[in-house]
Design a protein around this nucleic acid. Structure first.
Lengths: 338, 338
DNA sequence: AGCCATGATGTTAACGTACTCAAATACTTT
DNA sequence: AAAGTATTTGAGTACGTTAACATCATGGCT
């Protein structure tokens, strides 16, 4: 008795509700979980007691008993990177539909291995996990996911044991090159992002492979830092190339800078030079945004990752490689040369 | 025995490790928690057993016993809204420093009350919560947070029982108006966001109050939808106003549209008309971004919210109203009339 | 040698929930 | 009316962990 009063206030448990309603704790549990085999009178009495005491089910107790957390762990290397926001949105909305929460941690350590990150997440209340790492983890190929834990990597690199989900950074370049080729372009330059960017590298590889496949010349790409200003600088340099008829920029912001530089030099877009970007990120930022570009379904990227994190728990699940295609948004910056 | 083998595979527990290492389960707990009172030999033996069996501490067991989750709940009304991304970044980094995770859920129901959202979050494994709602919740003023649960609202409206954290959407307008007034401007127009936007309304109120305070004329504001295109349209209309010398746009994207419209009509910026935006969101998107604007410290917004969610658990805590000031970023779109 | 302080380890008891099983009650059928 | 069935409720237990307490050995001190 005295001991009771000395303890710090404990939240309301099912036992408290049971006492109040004059039923067993088990009956309270049934009401809390909405099971059907409870008498209507009893249910109302229990619900009244719950409301009166302000009962909220205890997460830890429930999870300990059930072995489920109804949450998926998420570790995004960089929340600020383009696409991760919309992806997060997709993950959250898929999670909500399944009655799941998302448990997020920040990863700041560049040198952390996939195993370390996965171990960290395993200690959180999660049934599965989604991981994105900026650089190639040192143990990428050897990493094995925790058994019974649906593990999804947001990565362009295929993985032997994990499902990987990513926007198709390679295929989008084929789409662009084929579109430009069909419009009669032969000299198509590429403007890359920073060399450490995996996305940029895959976009470049796609561009190279597509050009080779169509028998078009492959000129040395110039690299920027994703931002409009670097696009402007590159645009200045590229304006000297009188052969080229089209520029494929690894993102929209640089493309916008390139266009500004060309126009400042009296080169018209698309009359003299055509420009294509990737991301469809200028809309809303630039008035009369009319850049022909690639749009990825980032919501789907997030939703797919979440779905596979759930599916991955099941025993018979086989890892998949999911590449979500981009769609060409045709606007006004490409000229048909025919 | 037979029963054992029929059960589905159970994750490794401390008891398993204890058996393997030939110690008690309590000793395993001590090693897992890094307590000092363990013999070095024993520690190594236990750690070896942990590694061999692949032991990971069970979150539910630990939390059930300790009553702590080491996580803060987060419900952002709209992840896509400007500022929420950087805020999330701030929350995550503060959480990491405290060894906390963030448990996120999506809120899609417009009509959900603060109480409902708070109840949902209470059932998650969290020690505190951060809530942002787009519209004024019906029960905003009457809402009382769960006792012992640090509750922070990302809101410009003050709350009687909860700490509120928000970028100072009202004060930033004073900063802008005072700056323009000192540069000799008297006729300062305002371009608002959508009428449902709380941020826009506070920015407008600040503009009105500051104008009145300085004895400057208050012209009817025009409202856009945050995007550059709507700024362009409004710029066309405003170009007819020959009195005005400055335009204060509720965000940068519309400001950029306004500038484009003015220039298309032969009105020079800043020689003929000065323009100021808010958000500092064009950098990287627009080459040679030189818009004078207000920049908010959104990382701090997130970090502060998290810190207060933790502090709010302590018994003696008093709710605060935290307004994080914006900083004027002076670039090239304001002319000094003196 | 005997005593106490210290350190290392083990034992027991909760934390709050949901599952299994058993008991009690109400309802249906012959 | 008896027997059987369905419905409702309760009792007991286990999930994995940590806190409090108990035990045991070790070593330094008088």
């Amino acid at each position: 008795m005295a001991r009771q009063s000395l303890e710090k206030k404990r939240p309301i448990s099912m036992a408290d509700v049971a006492r109040e309603a004059g039923v067993s704790q088990q009956t309270v549990s049934r009401v809390a979980n909405g099971l059907s085999n409870v008498n209507e009178d009893t249910r109302l009495r229990v619900q009244a007691a719950m409301a009166k005491l302000g009962f909220r089910p205890n997460f830890a107790g429930r999870s300990l008993r059930s072995g489920q957390y109804n949450s998926v762990g998420l570790c995004l290397y960089d929340v600020r990177e383009f696409g991760n926001l919309a992806t997060l949105d997709g993950i959250l909305s898929a999670a909500r539909e399944h009655g799941y929460a998302i448990t997020m941690i920040e990863n700041v350590d560049d040198n952390l291995s996939l195993k370390d990150v996965s171990h960290k997440i395993t200690e959180l209340p999660v049934d599965g996990m989604i991981i994105s790492m900026s650089l190639m983890a040192s143990d990428f190929d050897s990493f094995k996911p925790q058994p019974g834990m649906g593990t999804v990597l947001l990565s362009m690199y295929e993985h032997p044991y994990c499902t990987t989900v990513e926007s198709d950074q390679y295929g989008c370049s084929w789409t662009v090159v084929e579109y430009l080729k069909n419009a009669g372009h032969r000299n198509i330059r590429f403007v890359a992002g920073p060399s450490y960017s995996i996305d940029s590298n895959f976009r470049q590889k796609g561009w190279e492979d597509a050009l080779s496949h169509f028998g078009l010349p492959v000129a040395q790409p110039l690299a920027g830092n994703w931002l409009a200003d670097s696009g402007y600088e590159i645009g200045c340099k590229l304006s000297a190339d009188t052969e080229m008829t089209a520029i494929y920029s690894a993102n929209d912001q640089m493309a916008f800078g390139i266009i500004a530089a060309l126009q400042d030099r009296g080169i018209r877009v698309p009359e003299d030079v055509s420009v294509v970007g990737v991301d469809d990120s200028l809309e809303g930022y630039v008035p009369h945004c009319n850049l022909t570009t690639i749009r990825f379904d980032l919501l789907k990227r997030g939703r797919t990752a979440f779905e596979h994190a759930l599916l991955g728990r099941k025993p018979g699940y086989t890892p998949e490689t999911v590449r979500i295609p981009g769609r060409l948004i045709v606007r006004d910056t490409v000229r048909n040369l025919h």
